[in-house]
Write a protein that binds this DNA or RNA. Structure first.
Lengths: 141, 141
DNA sequence: TGATGGATATCAGAGCTCTGATATCCATCC
DNA sequence: GGATGGATATCAGAGCTCTGATATCCATCA
């Protein structure tokens, strides 16, 4: 099997191009893609702890902690202890964080829209089904 | 557009599952996926400089330098100055590198094979075409 | 000959990502 | 009550990845 024939290569290339496009989109807002993803998850789930955000962003709690630390340093996120479980930290967007997120979101959504527009409804469903099968096969055992 | 509807999410998930499967496959050989990729490119292109390997592995020369440094430290790769251009460093697998690569390759090929077996010829071609269109759309400007 | 541009290489810095280990809190079970 | 297990959190370490900047070599062109 030659390298070029491998399905993995095509997936990796698409993912890299996706990251490059998204990265270029959110960079003017001073954000990285993982930072934008965290803000997106946070905007839809105010007060979520880091572990929850990690699950939403398909990453580990340790990685999410790293991302949140940078966002806190940028003044875009606040972390406050939960009232009942002092162990749990609730994360929330600051006002600056809201503004910065919306700025980045416009550009990021445009990328996803351009991608979606390149396919018919049927093709989109097909692509998602094929990728889902990849995930299923790769995840088993 | 909800997060779950985005094509990007499906691509990212497939790529992560692919990385997880490959990582688990090459770990017993003491390698990371990027290290394995570099060894694969090197086995097919003996003596290639880091810049060439970077292109083959879809990464940057700086990243490839990092990977090669780790591989040299592991004794799997040797770097020698080119005879004509003292500026250029030629990279070659050591004997240990050869052995370690073949060990990892068996497991990595099995992963790609399992993935390929999950699709008919037509489906494979379809998936690759759809992913290619993603890359094209995302790369343009 | 000298300047330009395209290769190569590397250093520096920031950020993301994982594995492994450890600590705390809380609900459940015995 | 005390033990267990599943959440949460974090520290430590290694590795990958990128951007930006800089240096060298060589072929080309004026």
């Amino acid at each position: 099997m030659r390298s070029g024939d491998r399905i993995g290569g095509a997936i990796k290339r698409a993912e890299q191009d996706l990251m490059a496009a998204k990265s270029a989109a959110v960079r003017p807002a001073g954000l990285t893609v993982p930072q934008y993803s965290a803000l997106l998850a946070l905007s839809e789930n105010p007060g979520a702890p880091a572990a929850t955000l990690a699950r939403l962003c398909l990453t580990t709690p340790q990685t999410m902690t790293t991302i949140l630390q940078n966002l806190v340093a940028l003044g875009l996120v606040e972390r406050t202890p939960n009232q009942w479980q002092s162990n749990v930290l609730e994360n929330r967007l600051t006002e600056t964080g809201q503004a910065r997120f919306h700025e980045a979101d416009r550009a990021a959504v445009a990328v996803e829209q351009k991608l979606a527009d390149a396919f018919s409804d049927e093709e989109r469903a097909q692509l998602r089904a094929l990728l889902q099968r990849c995930s299923d096969v790769l995840s088993q055992s």
